[in-house]
């Protein structure tokens, strides 16, 4: 509940206002030649990073934007950038 997130439209807001949208896994794969296992991995598998990960959030009680941001899953705080680029 201590989480705050920075919406690209509304700015830094209380974490209560947002809905988590999962890890950033890249855009939907092409259906052509897609094996069932690959599809399943795309939809259901997560890396569950212990550290900074890029992830999607939805500003449910605000502007209604989906945006991606970085969060440190160990401290549950939003961070500016991924760890290796600091």
């Amino acid at each position: 509940m201590a989480l705050t997130l920075t919406c690209p439209i509304c700015g830094k807001r209380n974490g209560y206002e947002f809905r988590y949208g999962g890890e950033d896994k890249g855009s939907r794969p092409d259906e052509k030649g897609l094996s069932p296992a690959d599809w399943c991995d795309y939809v259901h598998m997560n890396t569950c990073t212990a550290g900074v990960q890029k992830e999607w959030w939805f500003h449910r009680d605000g502007c209604g934007a989906w945006f991606s941001t970085y969060r440190n899953t160990l401290s549950n705080l939003e961070v500016d950038r991924p760890e290796d680029s600091t």
Partner: peptide, 12 residues
Amino acid sequence: TVEWFRYHTRYD
């Protein structure tokens, strides 16, 4: 509904 539409088109 809005969330659902926007989610599935968020990369596009």
